[in-house]
Amino acid sequence: MMSTNTSAPLVSIRGLHKAYSPTVQVIKGIDLDMHAGDRLVVIGPSGGGKSTLLRVLMGLETIDKGSIAFDGQPYIQADEARGKTSIDTKVRNSIGMVFQNYTLFPHLTIVENLILAPCKSRGEKESVAKDRALTFLTRFGLRDKATVYPSQLSGGQKQRVAIARALMLDPKLMLFDEVTSALDPELVAEVEQVIQQLALQNLSMMIVTHDMWFAKNIASRVLFCAGGTIVEDGPPEQVMGAPREERTREFLSRVFHIGA
């Protein structure tokens, strides 16, 4: 994976603020640097701003204050005076995202879902894109599903297709927003295994999850977010094993207690 500036962080967030309405402040000042190859897992209570952070990074939300640089280039800027957000769509194209609800296009077959963006927005030749798509599907154990429609797949299969669809665009950063939350428990493992596979290839990723075991296994770095700020930030053994902050401890004891 080429980087224009190897010393600069892959993602650099400064002074990020975001409110859905004057009374609903979801992000209240986040500063964050993430380096290439990092596998950042964001944990924390619901409503703590985890998913919003990912959606902002994907360029799906406007922001109120702050800026984000990606791979050394300016990416998202808040223009406070005019209340507008500028998003560089070229930069955005090197980020991929997988959502909780799969978001496969129901009117297209699996292969068509995979090649839509490469062919229609990058001008890749259909035969070339198709070959790449089949390679991904084979790798994820979905080769025989190539020509069926999303409605004929299980949740786990849909989510694996969604991951393959995002990978088709060679993203430098992958965002996973609670990708196993909508799945039946027995289907969670197959999706997590695919993400593990990607981790082995050193793909940079940011993951929001409620599955603490998965978080511990895959993370190279863990963020604990609550109340719209980053409360604790460090390697998984430290944040999840020996948290320094009282709020982190309290949160972890609650989820692990319920989990056990």
Partner: peptide, 20 residues
């Protein structure tokens, strides 16, 4: 959600309307 997916896949507005 479909619109979000289109943004995440970098589809242009035209491609989004025409193909999705």
């Amino acid at each position: 959600d479909q619109h979000n997916a289109c943004v995440a896949l970098g589809l242009s507005r035209y491609a989004e309307i025409r193909y999705v």
